[in-house]
Nucleic acid binder design. Structure first.
Lengths: 138, 138
DNA sequence: ATATAATTTATAATGATTCTAAAGTAGTGT
DNA sequence: ACACTACTTTAGAATCATTATAAATTATAT
């Protein structure tokens, strides 16, 4: 059983039709040893090289958004003109290197358990995201 | 001594000429009991009402950016199509209500001291920002 | 095979932000 | 008060990411 059929299954099971375009994007995003961070522009360029037939930019946007909605991707909160996505959907945090603009994973184990002592009536916590900005040492 | 002369001093001392436009924006942003969160669009609309003469949008952008650079404003990391700014420049965190898109301050005292156990060679921590997403309780 | 609904696509539209270059203004020295 | 210079403001154009549109294509159930 190759990866493709796994992706087909995954897509079908979440109500998404396994189209050529979605499968290409799956392969690009999930056929990896390590998780990674990307912008739409990043994968748009990568897909231009990898695939014989171009995938429309609109489709890339659509696909990334539906993958996010299905929980296969997370969006990372950084103040930037573009959106960053992460194929690591487990609960974790990030370093942002302000000199290089690089995002680096920060595992939950590397951050002491965060306790929020304030709570708002009628509201519950959905997620806690920590962004640690780092810079050169000198 | 009224507030205006305080603002004039503040601007001069940071190398910014106290122009009419900058003073108007100072009054709008800093003549308040409580700190607040805003987008450029927010204060653009507010300035339209408050001031007899309109301030150009470009000037609002320029001013907010120079105030940020001088440390009078902070930019908040939220994934959004617009930038959010905060007149509270002390070290603190935020709730984001995903149902209303409202930002709410979360004081440092309300978050247990955060300890980052991982560090990267040649890099030092510049800031730690926590975003707690909250949602309706039902 | 056909019908139907989902998907893709190119392109236009939108909206936030930045750029540009000309006109206006503050601060300094005379 | 006057003139000089550098800084600032301005309107509008340009840019860039993202979303909307509406027609063409494709996946799937019957």
């Amino acid at each position: 059983m190759d990866n493709n059929s796994i992706f087909i299954e995954k897509l079908r099971s979440s109500g998404l039709r396994p189209t050529k375009q979605r499968l290409e994007i799956c392969k690009l995003l999930f056929n990896r040893k390590k998780t990674f961070h990307f912008t739409i522009n990043d994968i748009s360029k990568m897909l231009k090289n990898k695939t014989y037939k171009k995938i429309s930019l609109a489709t890339i946007y659509n696909t990334v958004h539906s993958f996010k909605k299905k929980g296969y991707l997370k969006e990372i909160s950084v103040n930037s003109d573009k959106s960053y996505f992460d194929t690591n959907t487990s609960s974790h945090h990030h370093f942002l290197d302000v000199n290089t603009n690089e995002l680096i994973d920060l595992n939950n184990e590397d951050v002491d358990n965060i306790k929020i002592k304030k709570n708002l009536p009628g509201k519950k916590i959905k997620s806690i995201e920590v962004l640690v900005k780092i810079e050169n040492n000198n």
